[in-house]
Computed example of a mutant assay.
Amino acid sequence: MPQQATDVTHRLVSSPAGRIHLVEQGTGPLVLLVHGFPESWYSWRHQLPELAAAGYRAVAIDVRGYGRSSKPGDTDAYRMLNLVEDNAAVVHALGEQSAVIVGHDWGATIAANSALARPDIFRAVGLLSVPYIPRTGPRPSEVFAQMGGDEEFYVSYFQEPGRAEGEIEPDVRGWLAGFYAALSADTMPAPDAPGPHFVSRGGMLRDRFPVGRRPAWLSEDDLDVYAGEFERTGMGGALNRYRNMDRDWEDLADFDGAPITQPSLFIGGSLDASTTWLADAIKAYPVTLPGLVSTHILDGCGHWIQQERPAEINRLLTDWLTSLPA
């Protein structure tokens, strides 16, 4: 029988960044939940009580640079291996020796690299929306610079400190609402419309966001939570993750082409560019994720998968967790 879910607990724990804010619910084996851009622990609000009720100690963090966690001033403080060590520090601060780690969006990449670099701590890994791609090939900046032709790919647009902040911070709430809508199944632009992942030369990313459309999963109260945090902190810490991709490529050289061997799970949305553009990465899972338990592509789902389809995600996560070795 599933245990009764306990109340939510907020706390700060020490990490290489200074402190990491986490939200905890339940007792049992530890499941660490890592969010993506531009979100916070709150993106896991539907999963925390369900995982707790299923008998797990569910912990969602604010990644370094977000929410109530520390926000170092140096851009290179946000490199991937620092975030991996933050996750390891959280596990140890909670008095645990190991954890299952689950991530969405950037959180999926952070989770994958946590499992890759610290297999002594992370015994299984779940990836939502963004597939695992081993470190290989040319520098990421070179790849992204070649995308889009006369347009600029959003990752390249985010590289210059202050540029994206100048677009977002004067109207955080409006920008977030548009960004969430652009990647949600029920509000994203039509397939033949200009892509929201690209910026016209001299333009802004928000030029292609839907106007006056809020996705069904995002209530005004939800938007208040997200906007309130970024209005308080600014966007620099969140954007600095993108500004370290070349540093990550250098730091992870020892893991070039390396598979993740722990038991794994992938869930994507059929309408999410992260899933469709990276279809070859999913096809490569027999080599790159040899411990893969299952892959699921949710029909008609966009990018914000655990918020768009919480009941399905909760079922898939708990089924997978139950299948793992004790």
Rank of each mutant, 00 (worst) to 15 (best):
A216D: 11
A108M: 03
R315Y: 04
I121M: 08
R243T: 09
D105E: 10
F37G: 07
A279E: 13
T322G: 11
V100K: 01
I313Y: 03
V172W: 03
E231Y: 09
G268C: 00
P2H: 03
D319C: 07
G236A: 15
I313W: 05
L289W: 02
F255M: 08
S43D: 06
E250Q: 07
M204A: 14
L321F: 07
T318F: 03
D224N: 14
Y56G: 05
A99W: 01
V225S: 04
P72F: 01
A145M: 09
P29H: 05
H104N: 10
Q307C: 12
Y226R: 09
A115W: 03
P170D: 08
L252C: 01
Y285G: 09
L176Q: 01
A54K: 05
A108R: 07
G65E: 03
E312Y: 00
S141T: 13
S114T: 15
E152V: 15
E220M: 04
I267H: 06
G28Y: 04
W320N: 02
H35I: 09
T275E: 06
I110L: 14
H10F: 14
D171N: 15
E96V: 12
P290Y: 05
Y78T: 10
D186Q: 00
P290H: 05
A93Y: 07
L289V: 08
D254E: 15
S184V: 11
D74G: 12
G18Y: 08
D256V: 14
V172G: 03
W175I: 08
L176M: 11
V211Y: 04
F230E: 06
T288S: 14
P310W: 00
A238Q: 00
D207N: 09
G234T: 09
N87A: 12
F122Y: 04
G65R: 00
L127D: 02
T187D: 01
L298G: 07
P131F: 04
G195C: 10
L218I: 13
F158V: 11
Q47F: 06
S274L: 09
C301A: 15
D280E: 15
R64P: 08
L316C: 11
C301I: 15
S114K: 08
L292G: 09
G18H: 01
P191N: 07
K283D: 15
L205M: 14
Y42C: 06
F158T: 06
P170L: 08
A115Y: 04
V225Q: 03
S270K: 04
D299V: 13
E165C: 11
F230M: 05
Y66W: 12
S14A: 15
P215F: 00
T276L: 03
L218Y: 09
A311K: 13
Q306I: 11
A185S: 14
P119Q: 08
A17W: 00
P38V: 12
D7A: 14
V84Q: 00
A124M: 04
K283I: 12
L298D: 02
I267L: 10
G195I: 02
M80C: 11
A115T: 01
A115D: 06
A115N: 03
S114D: 03
